[in-house]
Amino acid sequence: MKIFLLLSIHFFISLTSQDDRDNFPKSFWRIAESVWKTESSQLTFKDLSIFESGYKKGVFYKVSNNQQLIGYLYIGKCNTCRAGGCKNIKQLNFAEGDYEYFKYFMLLDNDFKILQVKIFDYQATHGHEIMNKFWLSKFKGYNVSKTIVYGKNIDAISGATVSAESLIFDIEYIISLVSTIHIN
């Protein structure tokens, strides 16, 4: 009976993660294969539900290859706005009506160190420059023990300050959260 229950839970989880897979951006698969050096079909994703219920900004996954933990994935939304008039960049939740946002994903290794950050959807009038992959590559290697300082160890981008700060805030929040809670 217990086995049956576990099996059905497992089945349910694999079903939901199967759904999630379909919604991953195309660019994710290419990057995942090159970063984790494996076929994308081998990878499995488990939503770790690390956020409080009602959190709408993103989902944090454990990534495994043949039952073996190989890292983590975060896919989320970030608020931004035009220069000036920004109240809600650092808001932790995301209202559906917000107009100015972008979506990104972040690959982490087993110790929550950043392997790669990519912005795959940008829906705001200003600040597109943060999608530049050379700029984003500067996030590589960061973990909870290092602070990211915009304009210092991450280059400033003229015209994209608000979006850049919003992304940094979000990344720091996610990494500090996953580093302080017990994840299994």
Partner: peptide, 13 residues
């Protein structure tokens, strides 16, 4: 439809 949408952000320079 509008319950989460009607949002006014004020700013200036």
């Amino acid at each position: 439809a509008n319950v989460e949408a009607n949002q006014l952000i004020l700013g200036g320079y």
